[in-house]
């Protein structure tokens, strides 16, 4: 053994592989999505500000679409498998109403952090599922017209269902960035570098 330090704990290989795979797929979807955004910015249209090239993937619109629609199937399968495995064997990681109470009332800081983390984790899954639904509604607005029409709720305010769709699909990126940051910070409080290494190496 080359290692001289104390034995490094590892999560099972499939957990680490899945975790890393999630990260890669999400980065691809977000970066290619921002590339598509730049073809006609949701805010401002043709004159609107574009996302810096650093954060985009694909090089131009067709390239962005290649990645976005190339990975969407993988993304959906990945999310479906993740949800199924969670419900099957890691249900305790999901948030529940008790967590909200604990967050407000528990005297124990670790208990509050656990509750916060379970809520963050559950919110991530909800946001990811929503990105899939809103993406599908935009990808197939004629075939899934019923899905697209769900986004007509702001029409009385003058926001078309299409604009509502574009804004809400885009909003999943900042939402996920915040949730992932919260996830990293909360994980750090639990296990620090050791946990990070156990999860990635």
């Amino acid at each position: 053994m080359a290692h001289t330090s104390a034995r490094q704990p590892h999560h099972p290989l499939w957990t680490r592989a899945f975790h890393g795979f999630n990260l890669v797929v999400l980065l691809v979807m977000a970066a290619s999505g921002l590339q598509i955004y730049n073809a006609n910015p949701v805010f401002g249209g043709r004159g609107g500000a574009v996302v810096p090239e650093l954060f985009t993937l694909g090089g131009w619109l067709a390239g962005g679409r290649d990645w976005h629609f190339g990975f969407m199937g993988l993304y959906a399968l990945n999310l479906g498998l993740w949800l199924a495995l969670l419900v099957q064997r890691r249900r305790r990681r999901l948030g529940e109403l008790g967590d909200l109470t604990a967050l407000k009332a528990s005297a124990s800081a670790p208990r509050r952090r656990l509750s916060a983390h379970r809520i963050v984790y559950t919110l991530m899954l909800i946001v990811l599922a929503f990105s899939l639904i809103s993406g599908l509604a935009m990808y197939k607005p004629a075939q899934f017209w019923w899905l697209t029409s769900l986004f007509a709720l702001a029409e009385p305010l003058g926001v078309t269902s299409w604009q509502m769709l574009r804004v809400s699909h885009l909003a999943t990126i900042p939402a996920m960035v915040l949730l992932v940051l919260a996830h990293v910070v909360l994980s750090w409080r639990v296990g620090g570098l050791r946990l990070l290494r156990a999860m990635t190496l």
């Binding site: 970066a31 090239e53 650093l54 954060f55 985009t56 993937l57 694909g58 090089g59 067709a62 390239g63 962005g64 679409r65 290649d66 990645w67 629609f69 190339g70 990975f71 199937g73």
Partner: peptide
């Protein structure tokens, strides 16, 4: 992200594989 720029060259291949 820098890798992302190099990845742009792969876009068409990803499209060809999945379209």
């Amino acid at each position: 992200f820098l890798g992302g720029c190099a990845l742009n060259g792969l876009s068409a291949a990803v499209g060809d594989a999945t379209q």
